[in-house]
Design a protein around this nucleic acid. Structure first.
Lengths: 341, 341
DNA sequence: TCTCGAAATGGGAACGTTCCCATGACGAAT
DNA sequence: ATTCGTCATGGGAACGTTCCCATTTCGAGA
């Protein structure tokens, strides 16, 4: 392989191998079987000699596969998003695809723009983990033949595959665990579920489950920067002697972080007040008794998303898929009540 | 603007406006001034009507600007990398560019592959935050006219711009702070600095500074998963009555995390043992007395990297730039020694 | 009035592919 | 021997741009 100043083209390879560009193209477009053995050898040798790699630009301009998968993410600084991104990236690599990540910073306008951009780059598939997503933009992808997968979201009015946490199972596991540990006064804290269907699903399950089981449950639905709201409810939760033990269930990692911060500020002891959060985070083992979490299998989720894309690529009219993954309980001190006396 | 099933082409706009495609091309390639006022209006109107956006694929195939900036990152799960990524992304957006992020997962082979991929997508600039980077691959970018910026790394044998933390200032700030707080027996913990120049720079500065000042300083250079090495040194550090107060300086966020974990496991109290880390992390305010950190201005660093790229784009032979940013001290309990008696 | 240069505009090739449609060869069936 | 289908291969157009090189127009200077 010679290091050329300009990348080699298919024509150079064809010339060197003494074959037509069409044959070289076939060699690289998964039609090798159609070529005779000698031809394959000649092409392979020539390509190696000049260090040829097909130009994805030209390829996808012509309408061929771009080898590009897009990911639209609402908040790139959310550790969950990063974890998923990592999973996607791995899965893409394994499938010979490249991931193009677009962060919308929670701005619907940007979302639109990013979608347009990805579309103009002719991505072969799109993974969406964002809120304000105007459905018609997504539908445009679908009708143009680009598979779309919704990640940790669901949209009633657009028919696409969905992958994410099994929210019902997660909430059930959390509640079961809390109850088993002796907590019976539950506070569920979530960000406003407006656009985010998974927040809605978790919240709904929490409500119905607690109602069904007759648990003493309350809900706090707040923006995380609203420290007052948080503080007020946390204070109100402080345990009363000879009263049911209180516990907090955090709807996601961001909530867990905010709650941990305020509990520390208010000098509330977790354990005494139970604390469990959905999403595992680097530092959950670090705070004093450690925070119990439900870890999402993010790599598996990413892999599943790519699987969905590829399946649908090969069969555009495949059945709509919903893939929900169960979380894993990581038990730490925050759900270990102090020995009663 | 009509929603067309297939995106509009320059030809359709030209036709509709009754002008040549060349003129439309000029309109979109920053040569508007060369067009008469009437022509500009006609094109603008026609483009709006059919919802035209130039196709970046075709554009960059022909050799025009792709509007794509590549980022090669060694570990996408490192919060520092994510923070930088966010900064880059913002800066790109502002400049009308798109960011293509490639994660190499610390695998040199993948690095090569990712670089090749980005090159084949004709990125206009490359930001590198990775270790095993074979210099010749980078040089190839440079010679082909693609500006490269090294982020938090430096390479002796390839002439490119570099942006990152002012390592000297950071180490000095950390040491000064520790000394001012009454710590004088210092342990510097870092991952092996082999390929990473910033690790080398920090380590070197720590050594020379401590030597110059006659401080009782030791160094632990270890892989973070080597729990034994860590534990041993941490135990050895335990404070001795009527002896100089010990403190730990963590070379980066990953180290801080690992050290915090082991300190907790060994029941070592930070504060008593001083603890300061380079890189601010979400949870540093959460652990018991809080961990003092030096926060890097990641958004500014990202912005600076893009600035470098653009400068060099316009003047390929501009002077090589080194831009180093000072960190900000965020003081918490871990560098607050308990009141002495 | 003629010439000339600048300014405004357009035509066509090229970028590196893919894919449709030949073309020739060859063995099998008539 | 002739016809046919199949297989291996090649030529050329097309994808949507940009850019080089005309061509046309027009006002100014001779």
């Amino acid at each position: 392989m010679t290091a050329a100043s300009r990348p080699a083209t298919i024509l150079e390879v064809a010339h060197l191998a003494g074959v037509s560009k069409t044959s070289v193209s076939r060699y690289y477009s998964g039609e090798r079987e159609r070529l005779s053995a000698t031809m394959q050898e000649r092409i392979s040798a020539a390509a190696e000699q000049v260090g040829y790699h097909p130009n994805p630009l030209a390829r996808s301009l012509k309408g061929g596969p771009s080898g590009l998968v897009g990911m639209l993410v609402a908040d790139i600084r959310n550790p969950f998003s990063v974890a998923i991104m990592h999973g996607l990236e791995q899965a893409c690599r394994q499938a010979g695809l490249s991931l193009m990540v677009c962060n919308s910073d929670n701005d619907p306008d940007q979302e639109r723009q990013q979608l347009a951009m990805m579309s103009s780059w002719r991505i072969e598939g799109l993974v969406v983990n964002a809120a304000g997503c105007h459905s018609d933009a997504l539908r445009q992808f679908v009708t143009s033949g680009t598979p779309v997968v919704l990640l940790d979201r669901s949209l009633a009015d657009v028919q696409v595959d969905e992958v994410g946490l099994d929210n019902t199972a997660a909430i059930d596991m959390a509640i079961d665990h809390l109850v088993a540990q002796g907590y019976s006064r539950l506070l569920y804290i979530t960000e406003p579920p407006a656009q985010a269907s998974s927040r809605q699903a978790r919240l709904a399950r929490f409500e119905s489950r607690c109602a069904g089981q007759g648990l003493d449950a309350t809900i706090l639905c707040t923006e995380l920067h609203d420290q007052q709201a948080l503080d007020q409810r946390l204070r109100a939760l402080a345990p009363v002697v000879s009263h049911a033990r209180p516990a907090i269930l955090c709807a996601n990692g961001q909530v867990t972080l905010a709650v941990a911060h305020r509990m520390r500020a208010l000098d509330l002891r977790s354990g005494e007040i139970g604390l469990i959060g959905i999403d595992e985070l680097d530092w959950c083992g670090l705070t004093e008794p450690g925070i119990t979490t439900l870890a999402q299998p993010t790599d598996a989720i990413g892999q599943a998303a790519i699987d969905c894309l590829r399946t649908r690529q090969h069969d555009r009219s495949a059945d709509r898929q919903y893939r929900a993954f169960a979380p894993q309980l990581i038990q730490r001190g925050s759900t270990q009540p102090p020995a009663s006396h």
